[in-house]
Design a protein around this nucleic acid. Structure first.
Lengths: 206, 206
DNA sequence: ACATGGAGTTACTAGTGAGTAACATGAAGT
DNA sequence: ACTTCATGTTACTCACTAGTAACTCCATGT
């Protein structure tokens, strides 16, 4: 990977910036991994630094502080869920909900997704933490909305949207606790099965 | 309320022991409250002591250490769930599962129940932590067993017992995250609705 | 009165971990 | 060669918290 740059733009040595971005990326990945497997408090900045073969102060060159680090990771995962929040207007509410849930589930099976939970129950404050709270609220609100719409268009059975949304979120958040990257089931398969099971329920359909 | 003891047994001043037990109880309640609302790491022993109007060393008079404290609390909750593990042999597997889930859900809505989750994701080790792990495994195993039995007796639809058990556990564990003692819904009502929703699924039954 | 020991306190140790200051190095531009 | 700046490092500070030592105090039984 030699530097092929011939025309050096006066401002912003492109290479430098690209390299820096790349490193920031590596920092976030290492952080995600560490936080995902050990939680917030049991993960020290020295741990993360060690994973990268650097020292703690260097980390501070790429992140403002510990909260910033974990928030950045979690926010990235949150955004991936939020992308799925607007479904196809033509579909039934149930189909739109299923679409959202599938994405939600898949994200929760990643290290980045796990960090959403980490941020949430470590009570990370500051702008990063607040952003997470708002994002999760937004997802919750959308789920409730789709549940309500679904009872109208007939695609979803009547029920308490608030409780049902909590139930679904709980089931999906739980994935973060047990999913194993190297296991037999891929994230997509888990997502698929969860959605089906939530949709169908336990009792047999006659 | 008053100490009505007239015959003082030579050994073991009954009063003393009773009082001590009472205090140990108060310590566990304060600990449960603290751990439930702030998690393991954000709860200091000074916090707990302060809730009781005593000092930290006094706490050590009633508990071996921090881990012992949180484990004791969680174990107590766990036992309440385990009580419901053996259902009525006459009932269908679905009914037995529902019975277990109802209890599980109700416990998760208490401070003690919340501490199960706290212990689990703070990775508390030692005898207390191991006991929790085993207990949770036992519950998981029983759920899978009932799910399998249910497909046989026809009370439960076919599905992957492992995944389904994870899904259910996730939904129920989630209760710990949001349930509000002072809210509109009682723990029993939440448990009831969760069980119904899990049983019926999202899609309408025709 | 006096000894005993249960219950609690004050004042510490020791370890850990976030965050920082100040210095080192090396590549790029002049 | 000389400066500059990005990138790291070493070596700290500072705060916090689990756990302990060594006492004080008071109720009880003799």
């Amino acid at each position: 990977m030699a530097r092929m740059k011939t025309v050096k733009s006066p401002w912003a040595g492109r290479d430098r910036n690209a390299e820096r971005e790349e490193k920031r990326e590596a920092v976030l990945h290492a952080a995600a991994e560490a936080f995902a497997e050990r939680g917030y408090h049991r993960t020290s900045l020295d741990d993360i630094a060690a994973r990268l073969g650097i020292t703690k102060p260097t980390l501070y060159y790429y992140a403002r502080n510990k909260d910033d680090l974990v928030s950045a990771v979690a926010t990235r995962a949150l955004d991936r869920i939020l992308e799925a929040i607007e479904g196809d207007r033509e579909s039934t509410a149930l189909a739109q909900l299923q679409h959202l849930l599938r994405h939600y589930a898949e994200v929760m099976a990643t290290d980045f997704g796990r960090c959403i939970i980490v941020v949430l129950d470590a009570h990370i404050g500051g702008p990063g933490g607040d952003l997470m709270q708002r994002g999760m609220r937004q997802i919750d609100a959308r789920m409730r909305e789709l549940l309500a719409l679904g009872t109208e268009d007939g695609s979803i059975a009547r029920g308490d949207p608030k409780l049902t949304a909590f139930m679904i979120a709980g089931a999906l958040n739980g994935i973060a606790r047990w999913f194993d990257e190297g296991g037999a089931l891929s994230a997509a398969m888990v997502a698929e099965k969860f959605v089906n099971q939530l949709t169908a329920g336990l009792a047999p359909r006659r």
